[in-house]
């Protein structure tokens, strides 16, 4: 009877956007009379944080503080079309649409500022604090609140913009499967360290090391949430989860969380995560989608670590104690 330790690896890539494209998202943005920019979307936040990401993209493009940005979503009467939150597309599609809308609004903002300051719009810059100013000058500047008031009441201008992102749909060639499935690919490598109890068949995941190349971490804290929460889900898929424990038999299906097992707070491994950034040319500030892929690499990494620990090759998910024990029995010639 022993607790056997092992290490396993997996490296993966994952496509950003709906497979084969054809999945647009739009954004509208306008300034209130006092210089708050409202982004209007119909995009859904499932918890991944698209509202925060949309605000960050708009603030960066406008050159204004994020406090000047509000996000209004998701109402189909007021928000323009969004294909939906799936396929690791939200940040990429919506982010791009927001940047396009904000760039148009910024153009108007600078035009009005140029009139107010009596300078050329091309000579203006934003400093991220709310000021639009003449490059290299601290004298000639105007605050966004004053500028928005002037635009509305004096110049009769609407500081607004429209954005859409569409990757044109690709059609696979039926004979060969030739197709353009994705906008870009994110990458990951996981190393899993496990301990297998050869008496009970229980696998404990001790540590997970995750390296992700995600184009750009637009918000590193939220990117970390995706990586570490997704790794937990991957671990959970690997060791516990199914609605049909004796698939393809249909019986013994769990009905609730007492029967559908997942690792609890006492079962979680130490996680060490690292990001690399290789910006995608078509991504918002280079970002790729990572919402989905974070559950993927941990599963085979754990399978490979179990083999490393005890010599049992698990080829069916999930890796239940029963399957581990049957594997150990087979190794010992007891099958």
């Amino acid at each position: 009877m022993a607790k056997l330790r092992g290490r396993g690896y997996a490296s993966v890539n994952y496509p950003t956007g709906m497979n084969l494209g054809g999945d647009p998202s739009q954004a509208l943005i306008h300034s209130t009379t006092t210089g708050t920019f409202v982004i209007t979307l119909s995009s859904v936040d499932l918890g991944q944080g698209i509202k925060t990401i949309a605000a960050q993209c708009a603030a960066e493009t406008l050159g204004l503080p994020i406090e000047n940005v509000l996000v209004d979503t998701a109402d189909t009467d007021t928000g323009p079309h969004c294909m939906g939150t799936f396929a690791s597309r939200g940040t990429h599609r919506v982010g791009n649409a927001v940047i396009m809308a904000a760039a148009e609004a910024r153009g108007v903002m600078l035009e009005v500022a140029a009139e107010e300051l009596e300078v050329d719009a091309a000579d203006l810059e934003t400093d991220g604090t709310g000021l639009i100013k003449l490059k290299g000058s601290d004298e000639k500047s105007i605050h966004i609140t004053d500028l928005a008031l002037a635009a509305h009441f004096k110049h009769g201008r609407t500081i607004s913009g429209r954005g859409i992102f569409l990757k044109e749909p690709s059609t696979p060639v039926p004979e060969t499967g030739e197709m353009d499935p994705d906008s870009c690919q994110a990458h990951a490598c996981t190393a899993a360290f496990v301990e297998v109890d050869d008496e009970t068949g229980v696998v404990e995941v001790l540590e997970l090391y995750n390296v992700y190349e995600i184009g750009r971490a637009l918000n590193p804290a939220m990117a970390t949430q995706q990586v570490e929460g997704g790794a937990w889900m991957g671990l959970s898929h690997a060791l516990f989860e199914t609605t049909e424990p004796y698939y393809p038999r249909r019986d013994h299906g769990p009905r609730d969380f007492a029967e559908y097992l997942m690792p609890g707070p006492a079962d979680i491994p130490v996680q060490h995560s690292l990001f690399l950034e290789r910006p995608a040319g078509n991504g918002p500030y280079g970002a790729k989608g990572i919402g989905e892929m974070t559950a993927n690499a941990p599963i085979p990494a754990i399978a490979n670590a179990v083999f490393d620990a005890c010599g049992v090759r698990l080829t069916a998910m999930p890796f239940t104690p029963e399957r581990v024990l049957r594997g150990l029995d087979a190794l010992r010639g007891n099958a």
């Binding site: 944080g49 605000a55 960050q56 993209c57 960066e60 050159g63 750009r216 637009l218 590193p220």
Partner: peptide, 9 residues
């Protein structure tokens, strides 16, 4: 200025 920074959710 905003991209890449830890903005609160």
């Amino acid at each position: 200025t905003v991209i890449g920074s830890v903005v609160q959710r």
